[in-house]
Design a protein around this nucleic acid. Structure first.
Lengths: 149, 149
DNA sequence: TTTACTGCAAAGGGTTTGCATGAGG
DNA sequence: CCTCATGCAAACCCTTTGCAGTAAA
């Protein structure tokens, strides 16, 4: 997603299009690694050395409320991702990598439909996380050595 | 689950069976409202006025590592629940109530099996949360009045 | 008796808030 | 111009850590 598309979506949401906001949105929307606030900060700081974490937090809130990104709160900190469609997250408990699963989207949609139809609970969004060992760390575990070896 | 059963499980895990630990375990294992640390603290304090939050945290960690309970980290704080089987949590974004969904357990199991078989990711556990409005808050929203009215 | 646990205090650290300055529309 | 956004600093608060005394086994 390029800056013009992002700017258009921001205008639709009736928030100001500032260079900082554009950069933060671009950093998350073009990411696939579910970056932390600190990582987003580091990536944006190259272009905006004076930016502070407060600006990052503020804008991530705006972007989340606009539905452009999704916040994934974890135990210690939040991560952010551009994929707001129903899907499964794979969280490695060894190296803390988070990736979107390639399978299971339809299953999540079906599950959501089922919850909606079989209960009085009105679903707004969902989060499906599977915790375990990523391929790399699983292999290292089998061989009894760290993944970085 | 009564205290003797809990004590037995603790002995199997080779941790000491203290009155405080028993009380904390009992408070969570017999709960259905996914209590916060503070709520567990309040419920146990009746019997142990001198207990501190550090003891609560310490014991919740022990119980979680033993597989007796599951920690559910949220944005602001963690909640704890006795249901360690695959299931769906319904989280109300209005009143912050968390409840186990009656439907969907099998679907979660199937989804887990699918993720396990169709990828190299080795699943250890999962968390499936649906966010939205609980029946009470949904009704209040439709009538344009707060749930407490 | 040995070692883990409890209780108390302090520190840690991601996130939020308040406010003055600056920029978007 | 008026309003919202940025930048800086301080506050917040849940959670973790360290340590001395205590109790389980």
């Amino acid at each position: 997603m390029n800056q013009e598309e992002i700017a258009e979506r921001l205008r639709q949401w009736e928030v100001r299009v500032t260079p900082q906001r554009l950069a933060i949105a671009e950093a998350v929307l073009n990411s696939t690694d579910h970056p932390t606030v600190q990582q987003i900060y580091d990536r944006v700081r190259d272009h905006f050395p004076s930016m502070t974490l407060a600006t990052i937090y503020s804008n991530l809130g705006v972007l989340e409320r606009s539905g452009m990104i999704q916040e994934l709160p974890f135990q210690k900190m939040s991560r952010y991702e551009p994929n707001v469609e129903p899907h499964v997250n794979l969280v490695c408990i060894q190296c803390e990598t988070v990736m979107d699963a390639e399978a299971g989207q339809e299953a999540v949609v079906r599950l959501r439909n089922r919850i909606s139809s079989q209960s009085d609970f009105q679903v707004a969004w969902q989060r499906v996380d599977f915790y375990g060992w990523c391929p790399r760390c699983a292999a290292a575990k089998r061989e009894g050595s760290p993944a970085g070896a």
